[in-house]
Design a protein around this nucleic acid. Sequence first.
DNA 1: CGCCTAATTGAACCCTCTCAAGGCCAGTGG
DNA 2: CCACTGGCCTTGAGAGGGTTCAATTAGGCG
Lengths: 230, 230
Amino acid sequence: MRTLALYWENDDDSADAIRRLRKGTRDVGAKRFLVREGEVQDEVYSIYSGWVARMKAIGDGQREILQFLMGGDFVDFPLLSGRAASYSVQALTDVQLCVFDRKVLADYMSERPALIQRLERWISMEMNYAYVRLLDIGRRSALERIARLLLELYRRQERLGLLVDGVMSCPLRQQDIGDALGLTSVHVSRTLAELKADGLLELHASELRILDRARIRSLVGLPTDQAMPE
Amino acid sequence: MRTLALYWENDDDSADAIRRLRKGTRDVGAKRFLVREGEVQDEVYSIYSGWVARMKAIGDGQREILQFLMGGDFVDFPLLSGRAASYSVQALTDVQLCVFDRKVLADYMSERPALIQRLERWISMEMNYAYVRLLDIGRRSALERIARLLLELYRRQERLGLLVDGVMSCPLRQQDIGDALGLTSVHVSRTLAELKADGLLELHASELRILDRARIRSLVGLPTDQAMPE
DNA sequence: CGCCTAATTGAACCCTCTCAAGGCCAGTGG
DNA sequence: CCACTGGCCTTGAGAGGGTTCAATTAGGCG
């Protein structure tokens, strides 16, 4: 486990400053909830290591995973004004968190207006993930959805420098993938088999390897070159 | 056509101040694009009157509507830092816009840190709409999706004081509803017929009337009382 | 080794799509 | 005033992608 940067770490030292605001760290076991829908929390978490998911539950025990979170991501939302969460957040693996006091964070930021844009950029990136997922679920086939999601996760882990020899450690169960993409775990299984058979990727024993990135990108409707992320 | 409040108009006068920043107004005809995916704009719009949709296109001519916008909503995103839009924005009806200069708005806000929280609250509300839609498309049946969307729109128009005798003027084609919910216009037609037959709502000649709000709410999995919005 | 959770596979079903024809309505032009 | 047009909605029939149910296999872990 290594120390991960906060998202807005870029070219200046504001990330460092923010990091110094942290109250401490905390370990949370897999399957534990960090936030429950409807609750208000005066702490803010960012993820140090491990995987986490934001999700909404529907009456009959079903759930929809809204977003997967990993190293450096802030867990909840809105960050500054503590309001009842509109979703739950659950640890998918054992997780190490960075803990902030919401008020301290809010005070710090309101004294540094330049950070607004950074905050806004972060949020709009989050927003974009949600919108891309909407396009996925609304308009793409199971094959395309799964390929795109795996590529997205792979890309994010890659950026964090967490790949080992081009292999991503993927703690997601097929159930989780299905819950994120509006599919059944059964159908995720079948579709993954198809992707493997086509030689696009390998996923076995929680290890994901992208075999043919270009072909996946074209399958998904992205330009084949490296123009755009995900 | 009446003057609509900006979203963050609440209890103080910051909304007034922001409104004074506006550069002017502009009229845009139905079907025109206000923003195109990938473009950068130095103007920011909020909606004065009319309906607008954010959408993403997929290669083969399909599109997914991400969000419907109406009176007081800001059109694009991120608001302050002009970046390439990750979606297009199209007018669904003739629209009257409030035009701001992005830089003026950004400067104004960075001098008033208290507005950060307001900005963040707005965005997190937007985020919530996206997340609710994800739950819809991912886990709910066509019947539930359509009922919920129409209730959401009805509720928003109600808040804006735009209902006339409990009737909402709904400029959406069934195609639009389908594009927002991941359905075909054909199936939207059939499902609407079912909702009408069940006596839940009326939708005819662009006029929507909610007949049995409580039953729709329970169909959709919301508490039957008025506890929560949408 | 045994237990438990996750993944795979098969078969039947169903919700939603596709394709296609017809109807309604508003606008337009003769 | 009426025929024509184009856009949208409706309706039918058939097909398909994904689900459901259920049984089996594979994997981790004490």
